[in-house]
Design a protein around this nucleic acid. Structure first.
Lengths: 346, 346
DNA sequence: TTGAAAGCGCTAACAA
DNA sequence: TTGTTAGCGCTTTCAA
């Protein structure tokens, strides 16, 4: 691997000059020199050593994409349809902007902090952080951060010193619309399905409750179905769930991933969707598109969300202050065929 | 960000000593010194600068995962179910071994070579390379390489100087079994669906032909359906395909991704699977599991394949010579419900 | 058991 | 327009 110094020697010039033409600082170099150097670079197929460059410039051209996962999740987080679509959008933008994506997957914030600081990532995309997780990272990290789907208090945002943007979604509204739609279709015993009630799911839960309230349907804790997402637990969870299924006429799921799993679990037990149980999902990810019956769900543009997160971050990296600290993307009900109209029976 | 030098100053000792305890070279340091240094490291929350370390050691702890994609693919390659499951398996192993995963996605081998050499990745996992692509990369790169699903000639393998392993699959056999099964079920007009006929798909094509031949069914080029996988082409491709569908009683698809897309395209046109058209897939990826009707497919253990690729590479990085240059994983037919038994009609 | 010093390859301030 | 030089933070050889 040939070095700049070596090239300079062979060409009888200084490393600075060579370095300048490599980096396109051509204002400072005569055309002939440029040509000579460039020709030579091609000949010897020079490739820069990025560690050396990063060390000298104290930056990295790395964008860290941080996924906080839980240990022993039933499937690897990358295999999730929502995640992989989002990453697709992010990756493409990062690459086209001349940056590199490094994935940090961990269930431990301290470890994440260690990773991103050791690598000296130039900027971060954080998924599903809790309010204080994101701040904790920033406190040590002090470089631009874009969160995706993070609910964060106004006061907290201020502590980010203007190098923070959250890309969010109309979670409450989306859930409200979905549940409202179920009610319109004559459903009253409607379950809420998620694996936790925090972050986006908390907002979706609020939408669920608002729709119930508005229709005068009494809320009951018993209708809140909480999945355990461990490898050994998930099947059992769905089994229990399917057993309870007849207590409901419909289930609102916090993701298409879970909705399709539910549909499949029902199918496996001979429970027909939507004839015997109506199901709505959330996200409009690939898994929902493949579902049969086609899943009625809350649509969001996942790829665009990823792209927006990445472009926003790159904008921050270019030194621009964010216009807003929060961008809320639209969510809207997408009616397909996984909900039965109970009113038709009359 | 505090440096080793600074720590050494404050502790009144040399950088060497500090560095030694950081790296666990404890044989050379007295217990008291170790304790003192470690305590201090925690206090100041020392994090190493990995660029500096990489520069000094000329290594990187990076494992490059290279996806050769085509421009303008109908969906981002990360969003594909097979890819994302495979990556999940790889990522976990890489992380647990203390390495970092860097994704290089490009349609241009020269660019890929540039990336992996600039970053000085310690090892590479290459997906779906052509014979000469992999070798071209290695010629410049000269570090351990593990390929996934690459068909490579024996003579070529030798040029890799024993730092090469391919993780393959019984592609021909899997395809043969699937098509043989279709024939058993009374199908004769069987189409072959893929986006290209090279690499794994070529082997699957061979399996398809062998099954036909063996059954005395004449092969026809007209039964080979080639998808154009561009963003603007894919729908059109499937539309054309659905129009032709009645020429066949069954379609063998080279991936579950395409099989499920086909099933959906049929569904959208009122063509019932398997009643009017039988479909088998390949891979047994998530998309096939979600399909309705449940997809009859050729099963392979995708996650294990990813894990095996990564552990094999890490083994090479540890300086071990590979036991074999090629590991072939098993593929076997998995019968679900997307194939109709034509013989039942009598 | 500890320390001094050179060097990894590149950049950037400054001098010529 | 070009060159000199001093780092960036860490490792490593060799000497003490």
């Amino acid at each position: 691997m040939i070095t700049i110094k070596e090239i300079a020697n062979r060409l009888g010039m200084s490393p600075t000059t060579v370095s300048n033409v490599i980096r396109g600082k051509t204002g400072e170099v005569s055309p002939e020199t440029i040509a000579r150097v460039q020709k030579f670079l091609e000949e010897v197929e020079y490739v820069p050593n990025i560690s050396a460059r990063n060390l000298a410039q104290s930056r990295s051209k790395i964008i860290g994409v941080v996924l906080k996962t839980v240990e022993d999740r039933f499937e690897h987080i990358l295999a999730d349809a929502f995640v992989s679509e989002l990453l697709g959008g992010i990756e493409q933008v990062i690459r086209e902007a001349g940056y590199f994506m490094m994935l940090y997957i961990s269930d431990d914030i301290a470890e994440i902090i260690k990773y991103v600081t050791t690598w000296n990532a130039d900027g971060l995309v954080l998924f599903w952080m809790q309010d204080d997780d994101a701040l904790r990272i920033y406190k040590k990290y002090r470089k631009p951060v874009v969160c995706v789907d993070t609910y964060i208090k106004k006061e907290t945002i201020e502590q980010f010193e203007n190098s923070f943007v959250n890309i969010g979604l109309e979670d409450e509204k989306g859930a409200y619309e979905a549940v409202h739609y179920l009610i319109t279709m004559g459903h009253e015993r409607i379950a809420f399905l998620s694996d936790k009630i925090s972050g986006v799911d908390l907002e979706r839960f609020r939408g669920y409750r608002r729709a119930l309230e508005e229709a005068g349907i009494e809320y009951s804790d018993k209708n809140v179905l909480q999945l355990r997402s461990g490898k050994d637990e998930i099947d059992q969870s769905f089994q229990k769930l399917a057993e309870k299924a007849e207590r409901f006429t419909a289930v609102f799921c916090c993701s298409d991933t879970y909705a399709t799993m539910l549909v499949n679990a029902c199918f496996a037990r001979g429970l027909r969707v939507p004839e015997q149980l109506s199901v709505v999902g959330f996200d409009d990810s690939r898994s929902g598109k493949l579902c049969r019956p086609p899943l009625t769900t809350v649509h969001q543009d996942i790829i665009e969300k990823g792209e927006l997160a990445a472009t926003t971050l790159i904008d921050l990296l270019h030194g621009n202050s964010p216009a807003e600290n929060e961008v809320i993307m639209p969510a809207e009900l997408l009616i397909r065929s996984s909900v039965k109209n109970l009113k038709e029976e009359f």
